[in-house]
Every structure is written in C-alpha cells, then in structure tokens.
Design a protein around this nucleic acid. Structure first.
Lengths: 320, 320
DNA sequence: CTGTTAGCGCCTTCAT
DNA sequence: ATGAAGGCGCTAACAG
C-alpha cells in the first residue's frame, strides 16, 4: 500500500504537491502534475480514506434510517438513494430501526459525532423535537412534509393525495369507504386520518372506526383485513390500501373467499409498485425511486434546508 | 466536540490512560478509571471514529455486494446481515451491482485499499479468478459453495437441493418437469442445470430446452412463463421455480388463465418467503435471514477461511 | 500502573 | 509554483 509519501518520493516532489494534484488544486506545473500522475498509476495508488476523513473532518458516508429494509416501499426508496450514492462516490450506512426510537437516536448521534456527513430519515417514530436537537450537527433530510421545519424534505401531499383517492372512489359510487394503513400514529398516518374524517364530514357519512385497518404492512397482512371484512355485517364497499403489496394480499384472499373485485369490494392501492401493474390494481403512483434520488441529493447539498413536493398520479386499472 | 486530550486534562491523567479505559485495557487503577469515566460522561465524549480507524488501520465497515437490494431474496439476506452488524457495532456499505462486473471490482478494490474491513458477496458475475486476486487484502465471504477456495462461504448444496425437488415432483407422478431460474450462468445456476440434466438421464427422460425458463426474478416475470406455457403443445406438468416471488407470479397468472394448480401444473417454490406461506406454495425453505447472520459473522472472523453448509427443508403445501 | 512519544496518511497554513 | 511543518484524534510501543 503505497502512501502519499511514496508517491512524492517517486515523483521527486513534496507530499504537498501530491496532495495538490490529488485535490485538483491550481498552482502545480503541468510537468510535476504529470510526474505525480504517472507515479500514482504505477503504484495503483489509492488515498487512505480514513486519513482523508480525519484530516478533513468529513466521511463521505450518508446514514439512511428505515424501519425495515426488506419491504418494497423502503426497497425502492433505498434503490434510488443507493444509485445516486454510487454516482457521487458516497457510501451508505444503513440503520434498520424497526421503529425503535433508540435506533433512530443512535443514527442521529452518529451525525452528531461526525461519523456520517448527513442523515436521511425515510420514516421515523421519534418526535420532531428530538430531530431538531440534532439539526446543528449536519444535514438531516426527511421523507415527509417538513416545511417550516429546520430540516430538508422531499414529500408528497398526503392530505391531498388521500382526499383524491377517496373522492375517486366516491365518484365511482361508493358510500362506505374504509382504508388500511400500517401505523396509527406517524405524520403521514395522521394526515391521512385527517383527510379521511374531513371527507366523511363533507360527504355527510358517519365515521366508523371499524373501517380503518391498522398494522397493514405486508402481503400477508391482507389476510386479516379480509377476515375482518367477512365478519362485518355492513362491510365497506371500497378500501384505500396504503401499500400495493397489501392490496395484492387483500386481492388474493378475496379471490380465495370469492369476494368479487371490484363488484363486492373496490381496492385502491398506493405506490404503483410492480405488483400493482401485474395484478391490475388501480393505484396512486408514488415515484419512490425518484424520491430516493432526491433525498440523497438533498443530503449532500450543504445549502439551506429545502423542501420539494413530489406529485402523485392516479393510475386506473381494474380494482375499482 | 471534546477529544481525548480534553478528557485527559479534565481527569488529570495522560491520553494513554484515557485510551486504555476506552479500550478496556487492564492496568489502570480503579481510581483513575473512574475519573476518566466521569470526565467522559460530563463531556458526552465520543471517540472520533476516523481517528480510531486511521490509527488502527481498520474501518468497522463491511461491504455487502448484491445485484439488487429491492428483491425479497436479497432483502432477507440483507436483513440478517444488518441485524448482526448493529449488534457488533459494524456499519454496512452497500454495493448494488446490477451484476455489472465493474461494480463488483470496485467493491473488491475498496477492500484492497482498506476502505472496508471485509466484503460479503451475496451473488456475483465476476470470475472466481478475480475474487482470488483480492483474498490477500482481507476477508471475502461468498454465499455459494466455495469449498476448496481461499475464501469463506456459507452455502446450501444446490445440486442436492435441486435434485431433491425434482425427485419430489417425480414421486408425485410428474414426467415432464421444467424449471425457471434467473441467470443462465452463475455458479448456482450451473449446479442446478447439472442436477436437472442428471435427473433427466436417470429418469430416462429427454432434455427439452424449452422447459427451462430464464430471466425469472420478480413476480411479474411469472407472466412470461405462463404465456410461453400456453403456447406449448406439450407443456411441462410441473415446474421448479427458484424464487417464491416468481412462483407467486406464475400462480397468479395461471389462475387468470384458468390453469389449475396443481392439477394442470405443479409448482415448487424456493426460499419459503412469507408469500409462499400465504399463497400455500409448496417450497424449499432456505433460511436466508440466518444465512445473512452467518455471512456477517464469517466476515468479521479473522481466522482461516471456513465453509458452512446450511440445510434446506421441503415444505409441503398446496401447489404440488 | 502510568506517561512520553512516535506514528497512522493526509491536508493546509505559512514561507519561500 | 513549491516545500516544510504542524495538526486532525487516537493507538501502541517503550520507558519508567
């Protein structure tokens, strides 16, 4: 492992000069620059990143917080982040939190202690107040509407989006509309609940807590939804399902139970994941890979916190 | 950001002593140890990892090479790796390669240049010769049978496993058996092909290249399989599908086309992913999360390369 | 048991 | 345009 000193010796210059060409600094004669270059290729020289990091106080590491990594939603997000990271020569440090606040704080602390340069939080359980304690230590970017806050964000307008979905179902003639979601709390969940209640009020429909299905994250969670549906005397005729993979699960079990889609039950998915296309699920397209890309770019952008809204598109297929 | 010197000063000791308590070295009086400890908590001291890494020549970073991260197979593997990584205070550096050799070499070079401590290669396209060029630089662990090679590995016996699946189908009365797989080449693919051909020979069945379906990676790839199936004059009556997610896709499309499972077509999945349970897919259980765990442990184990076989279990459900 | 000191490899003033 | 030298924060002989 040749180091900067060796290169300097070989090229007959000082380490400073080597460092200069390494960092594309001006004021190096073309001659010496060339000598250094060839010495570097000869030794197949690679700078020791730890030394660079120590010296510069930066790491080229970006932390990524997700509750799970093995889930299509976060998988797509990660994919977008990872692709952009390689392009920019950054590495990712993964924090799989399972929504444990402790894990999130660990990630935040890595930022505080300069072990990573920035932190992308794809989903969180900790309060905004905790996040804000750490904004001073480095860029934090959230995947939720954080306008007005001191962190960057890429977000979709959950309220609008959810309202749009509900309205679409309403216009298709549905009165009893329910929805499934993963978490009861969480910023996005609350916005959706708000949109839901607001919608009911406008439509003059009663609020039936039974029509909300929580803990829906994976394909198999669709089972429970269908099971509960079967037991209800007056089940909803339409469901907004905040994840295509769950929608796919519901669809599959409905077929097993001979519930006709969309006649007996209309289903509106979320995300437009590949499975939605395959199973002809009507859904709201959320460009997750693209969002991941933007999240990364925001993380390495050292200017002021910025906020960017991403728009969703309703994709009509055969489940509504 | 207090550093080791500050702590030393506060505690009235030398930096060495601080370093000693930091690294749990013996020969520090309980008294001073305590003084150092309290100074550390008072400043909320965190060692600068870059400095530690530079000094020790290690990074506490483990590279993980996967072709894709957004796929249940690699997702589960990653999950296992990630869980064990946090336990051991290591961070993961992700390399999503899309099976581009260049990306794999990049990862290998990061090992060479000490930017990561070890490298886990979950799946590869580059030749073993290339891998072996890098073994001198640090632990490399593969998720395939690498016995006899100079790298560690966790693996399942692909040949045996595939034979077992084929034999199971045969015993269920199937003569025309095909299989679907992602890659044509690749170590595992070749072993499976070998097992397949050997099986046919033993059973005295002809080899029909049409019965092999390549490029099957995702749910939606099941479509193409079914489409081809429909066009065949003498389609296979059973399929070994080397990924449950693909099996699920095939199952779904068969239902759409009114192909009865298992009557018209028997399906044997692979991995026992959650979807297999839900859709009642008969499958071979491969403990991917556990494999991920073991891969990580091997990566940080500095002793000689070791090899561990992991065993699979056939899970009978309703698609055969 | 404890402290002094020389690195680890690179960057960056400061002189020249 | 170039180089000498100090420093980033920590570890690990070595000496005592």
């Amino acid at each position: 492992m040749a180091n900067i000193k060796d290169i300097a010796k070989m090229a007959g210059v000082s380490v400073t000069t080597v460092s200069r060409v390494l960092n594309n600094h001006p004021y190096v004669s073309e001659e010496k620059r060339e000598a250094v270059r060839s010495a570097m290729v000869e030794c197949n020289y690679q700078p020791n990143l730890n030394a660079v990091h120590l010296s510069k106080g930066e790491t080229l590491l970006i932390g990524v917080v997700t509750p799970f990594i093995n889930h299509p939603y976060f998988g797509q997000l990660l994919e977008g982040i990872a692709n952009e990271a390689v392009k920019n020569n950054y590495k990712l440090v993964l924090f799989q939190t399972n929504y444990e606040e402790e894990r999130e704080v660990e990630a935040l602390q890595m930022l505080q202690f300069k072990q990573i340069d920035a932190l992308i939080i794809c989903s969180r359980i900790c309060g905004m107040d905790i996040i804000e304690e750490f904004v001073a230590y480095g860029p934090i970017v959230l995947c939720e509407d954080a306008r007005g806050k001191n962190v960057s964000s890429i977000f979709i307008d959950q309220y609008q989006t959810f309202s749009k979905a509900l309205m679409y179902l309403h216009n298709k003639g549905h009165q009893r509309i329910g929805y499934s979601i993963f978490r009861k709390s969480g910023t996005n969940s609350k916005l959706r609940e708000k949109a839901y209640k607001e919608f009911l009020r406008e439509m003059n429909e009663p609020f039936n807590p039974e029509y909300i299905f929580y803990d829906c994250l994976k394909f198999e969670d669709g089972v429970h939804v269908v099971e509960r549906l079967l037991k209800m005397s007056s089940p909803p005729t339409a469901l907004v399902v905040t994840s295509d993979i769950v929608a796919a699960g519901i669809l599959t079990f409905c077929k097993e139970k001979e519930i006709q889609i969309p006649e007996d039950l209309a289903i509106m998915g979320f995300d437009n994941q590949p499975i939605a296309k395959i199973m002809h699920i009507t859904t709201l397209e959320i460009p997750l890979v693209e969002i991941g890309r933007k999240l990364f770019l925001q993380a390495i952008d050292n200017s002021e916190p910025s906020h960017e809204e991403v728009f969703v598109k309703l994709i009509e297929r055969e489940t509504v």
